[in-house]
Design a protein around this nucleic acid. Structure first.
Length: 319
DNA sequence: ATGGTTTTTACTGCGTC
DNA sequence: GACGCGGTAAAAACCAT
């Protein structure tokens, strides 16, 4: 079921009224708006007349017609209205004008040129569209996960590379975008577990994992295994624990690391256990259930881990 | 596909408020 | 009696081979 049922609609109104028939200052040809790039370019010579215009495309995506109806809050963007405006320009191959008269050689040449450029824009456009959609997804997921700006940037960069290296064919945009977010978060030292990622993504966990491996391998990204300590601040703060407890949790983890207790165990589990243990040590009220909740780790695992952590701590001065 | 390891699920018993 | 905690056994998930 991976056909392209998803309908991408664009508003059709060109910027201001008809009075503003923009002309290219360079060659006098008329200009077209490329909203995907936020630019206004001359159709004849390609000169960028205006940059950084606002993209008025919808912020939502629809995967089928009914969804589109639900989400669409503004006027009906029909194919009728799209056809002569907007992006899908078609240039007839016949060298006739609108009345059926043959074109002069000068005009013919011009049309030839237009066709070529139109084609170029179109292909570039499909890439841009892909990118735009993916970046939208990345943004959505990143904010749902509360990831900072730099992570989004990293994710975007990774996605661009993936796109340029032709890793997309055969994979869903969603999947790759998700994988990029996952990778970026880890590289930035603010990892999110695969489960958390999957919660805000539209694709299966297994696919995210698979795609993630693939992307990392193909782009040879350097992303080292997540450090349990990186999860600590987040867990601690969602449980409302003190800084001291957070610090203790870190200590526990470092100590455990030194003793090599941690190899093979899931970093999230370790972190969760450390947080719980630290709360105990600093006499702060938390339950295993609560930690299990925020960390998305079973209580059993927390129990097992935190015993190991405390064991490893034996013999050290407990302040 | 297989086997070994880790994590989860489900259940049970214990102490405390 | 509900709650937090601990333990266990079996199932599921994961990973390397």
């Amino acid at each position: 079921m991976s056909e392209k049922t998803h309908t991408r609609t664009r508003p059709t109104e060109r910027e201001s009224g008809p009075s503003e028939a923009l002309r290219c200052p360079e060659c006098g040809g008329h200009v077209i708006a490329d909203e995907g790039r936020g630019e206004t370019v001359c159709a004849d010579c390609g000169l960028v007349v205006e940059e950084d215009s606002v993209d008025r495309g919808p912020e939502w995506r629809a995967f089928n017609a009914s969804e589109k109806d639900q989400k669409s809050r503004v006027g009906a963007p029909t194919t009728n209205t799209m056809h002569d405006k907007g992006l899908s320009t078609n240039i007839d191959w016949r060298n006739k004008d609108a009345y059926g008269n043959s074109l002069g050689s000068r005009q013919r040449q011009k049309m030839q040129r237009l066709r070529k450029w139109n084609e170029r824009f179109r292909t570039r456009d499909s890439k841009e569209r892909n990118l735009k959609q993916a970046l939208g997804e990345i943004d959505r997921m990143a904010s749902a996960l509360g990831l900072p700006e730099n992570v989004r940037e990293t994710a975007s960069v990774i996605y661009r590379r993936a796109l340029n290296d032709g890793l997309l064919p055969g994979r869903s945009i969603e999947g790759v975008a998700t994988a990029c977010v996952y990778a970026a978060a880890r590289m930035a030292g603010v990892p999110r577990s695969l489960d958390e990622i999957t919660d805000v993504s539209r694709v299966e966990k297994s696919e995210v994992a698979r795609t993630y491996r693939y992307v990392v391998r193909e782009l040879s990204l350097e992303v080292q295994p997540a450090d349990p300590e990186q999860y600590v601040p987040r867990f601690a703060s969602s449980l409302g624990l003190s800084d001291e407890a957070e610090h203790r949790a870190r200590q526990l983890l470092r100590n455990a690391k030194q003793k090599g207790v941690h190899s093979g165990k899931s970093p999230v589990g370790l972190a969760a256990a450390a947080v719980y243990a630290a709360a105990l040590l600093t006499n702060e009220k938390t339950t295993q259930a609560a930690v299990s909740e925020v960390a998305d780790i079973s209580e059993v695992t927390i129990r097992n881990r935190y015993h190991e952590l405390l064991e490893a701590e034996e013999g050290l001065g407990v302040a």
